[in-house]
Design a protein around this nucleic acid. Structure first.
Lengths: 341, 341
DNA sequence: TTGTAAGCGTTATCAT
DNA sequence: ATGATAACGCTTACAA
């Protein structure tokens, strides 16, 4: 006597109709090659007739692993992580995996809540977007039996898998590019949002190159909270300088750089002759500004793709093919030269 | 003797440590008010000591409903659906629900696969982003026991819940705005991507207003496949007209309008004096263009919020409070007036 | 307020 | 290649 099952057909219904046992139907879905052709045909017919959909909850419980990958991103709708998400989701779909998603808004507590909930699903893998976690989160992922993948920021020393790029190198590339164009007085405009640790790494890379070339490295920190306003503020303040007026500015991100370009238009500056402007991120508007924005594009999509591939390797580690996948995947950024620098 | 459970603690472990039965621990999580204070305290201690995370797979199987909401969007990374996703995810998080996500790329088959897989999770609700489905998908959602919510496009006749806005009204608003600014020769530039049915509804709304005012409605269909190129093409072709040169153009979306503005710059047109440009979508770059783009902003975020609220109502339909929620939620768009029109 | 017993629908194990 | 059986970890139903 059934208790509360909804009217959806079960494996038992299919097996009865097909004249086989339930386990054979289960194999039909999970190891089709192990089912005889005639049984396959009968099962297929039964599945279609009943419009059967396997109960993944039950399967997940019985097999102790679910067909989902859980990911925590700081935000879904920003220009940064969306391509990663998209690529990951698409790569997972090909493998018959689903994506479980939560956003943390850069809050360690929110991330912890999400990770805790996600672990309850026994995910195939857990993908995070940072290497900075609360102590409780660290404990959770250390105790997790499923692979944990940290993305974007690289931290080679850590236990989880790493997929990302070097922010330090981004800073170096920007500085090398601008010095290569003949600029000497090059400044760095920080994000007004404190705690953007990756931006500080970019600054360090920039500073290293400047120093190596005997040039002075310096940073300007806007006070305006809004990024566009902050970029605008930086341009106004720095072009008003009597001495040491910069020839080029590297901005912590494209939002700041965009504010700078709009301010430049308003001030009647000729960009890049009067001031070269360089960003980071290659947001969607970068090629639509006037002048269009030179910037560095992080491998957002590649990160998602690589994560999907890694998960694929990790899941089908069968027999001889169980080559241990790389622990750290460093991907390259792209320097995009446009009009502003 | 355990079979293959991983080493994660179970309800039984917690209950043993707390000196209560498993069902009491279950109630501690699901109906805390029904557990006595001293038992609560002991359970809480045990949970923390063991770092217990409830197995949602098992819970989902036992209760025949999981704590996830599944959503299918055409794409995750575009400027359109991301805010909806974000708002939905945030609203669900507050309710202790997780978001399961797939993208369909506007393909009915992909949507069908996603819906099929999702139903296997017994989701609390299923959120779709269109009202056009394959016949098989229609059958699946008709047979589904969980609420199905269709978003963005409104289709009042249909069975599922509807949350969206009227594209027809968007077309009307755009036309009314431009005629109100004194324009008479107003054209509509179509999307070069065929099958954008909602854009055709916007056109119909525009045409209706034009007709009512005794003005001529007409559409231009670019051949360039890339939206930005298509917008550019439209401006070039239409400003070259000897007679009937338009005073204003309504574009099927902001990408087209953006291409138009960039073309206008290149052609040396004074915008909006020589040509007023109006878009749809209010993409992130709309206020960064020169001139900034006047457009209509769809209630993307509100759609996600409303969906989360609706799901909340649907889940806690307990006793007297079981007010039947509205079947159709029509939300308002915002007309954003900037420089281009 | 708490507990006992019986499943939920699937898959792992072992056997044939 | 196929099947019988026993879990998987939790919640519903019912009882106390």
């Amino acid at each position: 006597m059934s208790r509360r099952r909804v009217d959806r057909p079960t494996l038992a219904d299919v097996s009865a109709l097909a004249g086989v046992s339930t386990i054979t139907v289960s194999r039909f879905f999970n190891e089709p090659h192990r089912v005889a052709p005639d049984a396959t045909a009968r099962i297929q017919a039964a599945v279609e007739q009943l419009n059967y959909v396997p109960n993944l909850t039950a399967g997940g419980l019985a097999s102790a692993r679910s067909r989902v990958v859980a990911m925590v991103v700081p935000n879904i709708s920003g220009p940064i992580f969306a391509p990663t998400l998209q690529a990951l989701a698409d790569g997972l779909t090909e493998q018959g995996l689903q994506l479980l998603l939560a956003s943390s808004y850069f809050s360690g507590e929110a991330e912890e809540r999400a990770v805790r909930a996600f672990l309850g699903w026994n995910p195939t893998a857990l993908v995070l977007t940072s290497r900075f976690h609360t102590p409780a989160t660290e404990r959770l992922i250390a105790a997790a039996t499923q692979p944990v993948i940290e993305t974007w920021d690289l931290a080679p020393g850590r236990a989880p898998f790493q997929i990302g790029f070097s922010h330090h190198q981004v800073g170096r590339d920007a500085a090398n590019y601008l010095t290569g164009r003949g600029h000497r007085r090059i400044g760095f405009v920080h994000n007004s949002v404190a705690g953007d640790l990756s931006a500080q790494e970019r600054f360090a890379g920039y500073a290293e190159v400047m120093q190596a070339k005997g040039l002075q490295a310096w940073g300007y920190s806007p006070t305006e909270p809004d990024p566009m306003q902050a970029g605008s503020q930086a341009v106004q303040a720095l072009t008003a300088l009597k001495r040491g007026r910069p020839q080029a500015l590297i901005f912590a991100n494209d939002n700041l750089a965009c504010g700078a370009i709009l301010a430049g238009q308003r001030l009647g500056l000729r960009l890049p002759q009067d001031l070269a402007i360089f960003g980071f991120g290659d947001y969607a508007f970068a090629d639509k500004l006037l002048p269009s924005l030179s910037t560095i594009r992080p491998p957002a999509q590649a990160i998602g793709q690589t994560a999907a591939q890694l998960i694929s390797q990790l899941t089908r580690r069968t027999g001889a093919e169980a080559r241990r996948p790389a622990q750290v995947h460093e991907l390259d950024c792209t320097l995009v030269t446009r009009e502003s620098a």
